[in-house]
Computed example of a mutant assay.
Amino acid sequence: MSQKEKEMNQGAAKAESENLEAEQVQAENGETSAGTEKQEAETKETEKETKESEAKDAKKDPKDAQIEELQDRLKRQMAEFDNFRKRTEKEKAAMYEIGAKDIIEKILPVLDNFERGLAAVPEDEKGSSFAEGIEKIYKQFVKTLEDAGVETIEAVGQQFDPNLHNAVMHVEDEKYGENEIAMELQKGYKYRGSVVRHSMVQVAN
Rank of each mutant, 00 (worst) to 15 (best):
K60Y: 00
I107F: 01
R87D: 12
E172H: 10
G193K: 05
K136Y: 06
P62V: 04
K136L: 09
E80L: 12
E91P: 01
A12G: 02
K6M: 10
T43C: 03
E97N: 08
F160V: 10
S33P: 05
V25S: 11
E105Y: 05
S128I: 04
E42R: 12
V25D: 10
K56R: 15
Q39A: 14
N83Y: 08
G30M: 13
A94Y: 01
E184M: 10
E172M: 06
E154S: 08
L20A: 14
T152G: 04
E172D: 12
K48W: 00
G35N: 15
Y191C: 05
A100F: 07
D161M: 08
Q158S: 10
E52H: 02
E178L: 09
E69Y: 02
D124K: 13
T50I: 13
R116M: 12
Q26E: 14
V195L: 04
K106I: 01
L108W: 02
T88K: 09
H198C: 02
K75V: 10
T152H: 07
G177T: 11
Y176D: 07
I104W: 06
R116P: 02
E135T: 10
V110N: 06
E105M: 05
A12C: 06
K44Y: 00
K63E: 09
Y138T: 04
E91A: 11
K14Y: 08
E178H: 06
S2T: 14
A34I: 04
M8S: 14
Q71V: 13
I107W: 01
E123F: 03
G149T: 06
H165C: 06
M1T: 06
E91N: 09
Q158A: 13
H198W: 00
A93C: 03
V171C: 03
E54T: 05
T36A: 08
E40D: 14
S53P: 00
E184Y: 04
T144E: 08
E172R: 07
K56H: 07
V110D: 08
E21L: 09
G149V: 06
K101A: 07
A12S: 14
D124Y: 09
G193L: 02
A55I: 03
L74V: 11
